[in-house]
């Protein structure tokens, strides 16, 4: 047995084995996953972590070995992230997202949702009234590429045909659906991110969207196609417009809290707002996936107005019930 001169040397010799054991376990977790450890090893990690932390405190106070202290800091940090990090499995995470996080975060954003809805409705009405008075406004609200010939100069027959799949399906439906989905999801994430710039771009996007909607409504209603347009629009729009309103609400929540953090610091306020808004946004992307499927498939395949309305009503009811109906609290939650 070597005779160890210094206290710090003895200290290290006594504990080194534990450190190396923790190091090895963390190595396996980081390279593979927590599932590669046995139950016994999993339970050992928090104990070893605490002993590494106490070693670190002692080493800082008594040892002047630089390498040792660096090593213990890095080891404790890695163990900290494991012990206090999220380790739940994907399935549990998904389940808790659908059961709790999503509806709860949508519900907590009710004020922003109402504001976002109000902005959209007002913009739609303004767009409608303006185009009704002077069809020249139409081109100002709807881009040329988007209107694809559906403008005030088009014949009523042509407008009617665009609502029903007479010859429109030049594209395979699955492709149409996936393109609609990726495009809309991109816009929703965009609206959320722009909220950071003090809400203004998000409000602008909502207004633009509303004006466009109003312009189309005015065009079709002036030709006596209002009811038909409603079915064509709402079969997916019940989901899609709802998603847009929620996406806008998420952006508003972030922007508002950045401007007016209240009695918290701006950093804290932004972080809390950002997290709850992101929960809503993840849900919005899922809603848009549904909307894309409805728009790509159902709208092209179903040409009866009342079935379109029925689907619209059903989806809207389901969303509202899912988000806003009070649900029994889980015991212990």
């Amino acid at each position: 047995m070597k005779d160890l001169q210094l206290k710090s040397q003895r200290f290290r010799a006594e504990r080194e084995w534990d450190w190396r054991r923790l190091d090895g376990l963390l190595q396996r977790v980081e390279q593979r996953s927590a599932a590669s450890l046995s139950d016994e090893e999993l339970l050992a990690i928090p104990v070893l972590y605490r002993s590494a932390l106490s070693s670190l405190s002692v080493a800082r106070a008594t040892s002047l070995d630089h390498n040792l202290i660096d090593y213990l800091e890095s080891l404790s940090t890695r163990a900290y992230f494991f012990v206090y990090g999220a380790r739940s499995r994907l399935r549990e995470r998904l389940a808790s997202f659908f059961m709790e996080t999503w509806p709860a975060s949508v519900k907590s954003l009710w004020r922003e949702t109402l504001v976002s809805l109000a902005i959209s409705v007002v913009a739609t009405i303004v767009g409608y009234v303006l185009v009704m008075q002077d069809p020249g406004w139409f081109n100002a609200f709807v881009g040329q590429g988007l209107s694809a010939g559906r403008d005030p100069t088009a014949t009523t027959k042509f407008l009617h045909d665009t609502l029903y799949d007479t010859a429109a399906a030049k594209q395979p439906l699955a492709l149409l659906a996936s393109e609609i989905f990726t495009n809309n999801a991109g816009v929703a994430i965009w609206a959320f991110a722009l909220g950071f710039a003090f809400c203004i771009p998000t409000i602008f996007l909502l207004i633009q969207n509303g004006l466009m909607l109003g312009a189309f409504l005015a065009l079709y209603i002036s030709r006596g196609l209002g009811f038909e347009l409603g079915g064509w629009l709402l079969i997916h729009g019940a989901t899609e417009l709802f998603a847009i309103v929620l996406g806008g609400a998420a952006g508003l929540r972030v922007g508002w809290n950045v401007i007016f953090p209240g009695d918290r610091t701006r950093l804290d306020a932004a972080a809390t707002a950002g997290r709850s808004a992101a929960g809503v946004l993840a849900g919005v992307v899922i809603m848009l996936l549904f909307a894309g499927l409805l728009e790509g498939f159902a709208r092209q395949l179903i040409n009866t107005d009342w079935i379109r309305y029925a689907i619209a009503g059903a989806t809207l009811t389901i969303w509202l019930a899912y988000f806003y109906l009070p649900r029994p609290k889980r015991s212990g939650a």
Binding site: A86, G279, L281
Partner: peptide
């Protein structure tokens, strides 16, 4: 590595939010 500033867990919402923001930072 990414970590939560308050020392708590790194939640999925936080990861989602920080990456959605890339839209205005890069694009």
């Amino acid at each position: 590595r990414v970590a939560s500033r308050d020392g708590g867990r790194l939640t999925a919402e936080a990861v989602f939010a920080r990456n959605a923001m890339r839209e205005i930072e890069i694009f």
